[in-house]
Design a protein around this nucleic acid. Structure first.
Lengths: 166, 166
DNA sequence: GAGTGTGTTTAAATTTTTTTGAAAACTACG
DNA sequence: CGTAGTTTTCAAAAAAATTTAAACACACTC
């Protein structure tokens, strides 16, 4: 397959995957583009490669930096800002896990802990309490697991995956 | 806290969590409602509790059944269909993992395997090949891990989570 | 086989999310 | 300073996703 075609397919696929994970398509596509680029790219490069506006590029690059998936670089003698993707897959995964945990799991845990003591002794209230406990237990377990996964060093992540496989 | 308030908060929270996971808000809310309900509910119940239309309820219930998170039940003597949520959290998680793996990870792996042999020996092509290999390796590992997780029995899932925590 | 209650489908309306484009705000340099 | 190159912001436009409402289908009853 030609490089240009393969590149396009990868960028498309990454974008699709991203959007089913609550990450917007363009953000994922910029990430893909930077991932496969051997050199740092500036905003213009990204705009023209993906045919997106300056504002769009800027916002999504910022989001990617928030997630720790992309870094800004200054080249001496150049006014423009350049961008590089984090290329170590382990780090990529860890950063994504950390961010999602913080944004989704933790707020959920906060809400759940506020729902454990419900008034009334109707069957509805009883079932509610039971379900909330279950969900809470499970979420706490997931939280602890992910916390360990992300705090440990990169090699540990992969070895623990293997351990699960057994 | 009053039951009604807690219930509402939980349904809201579950809906929000769902939408950051690519599951639509209403689908997640119906799931939440059924999860905490001690009795089977029919379409009317769901429509009035969540203030949604019949069509909306119908479509999202069907999606939930696709995911194996909700089951249809017929009551003898009743014309209406009743719905119950799968309440075992382990099963819930397993079904979600299985579905997402099938819908997202597997198509990605297919695409990646079609991108391993790229023509040309430019630095771009070289970097591309390298990144694709990395992503592929990682995805395969994730796929294998999840496969084991879902095939094993329910208790195994929880114990393997503990093992990861160590 | 007309009538009623229920489930299903889908085009159109609505809502939400994303993207654009242009103005404003920086920044480095003369 | 003033200006040219660049990034940032944000209101408005466009696109995408969701929801509704109304038509349709089906099964059962009288």
């Amino acid at each position: 397959m030609e490089f240009a075609e393969a590149k396009d397919k990868f960028i498309q696929a990454w974008g699709t995957l991203g959007s089913s994970w609550g990450i917007n398509r363009t953000m994922a596509q910029i990430h893909a583009l930077l991932l496969i680029s051997p050199v740092e790219l500036n905003a213009e490069d990204i705009m023209s490669e993906l045919k997106i506006s300056r504002g769009n590029a800027n916002m999504n690059l910022r989001a990617l930096m928030d997630w720790g998936l992309v870094h800004k670089e200054m080249k001496t003698g150049e006014r423009k800002e350049f961008f590089v993707a984090e290329k170590n897959m382990m780090t990529v995964v860890r950063n994504i896990v950390t961010q999602r945990k913080k944004r989704e799991l933790e707020p959920m845990l906060d809400i759940l802990s506020g729902l454990t003591n419900v008034e009334g002794n109707s069957p509805e209230a009883a079932e509610f309490t039971k379900v909330i406990r279950d969900v809470q237990l499970f979420s706490q377990k997931a939280d602890a697991t992910l916390e360990n996964l992300t705090k440990a060093d990169a090699n540990w992540l992969i070895s623990s995956l293997f351990k699960v496989i057994k």
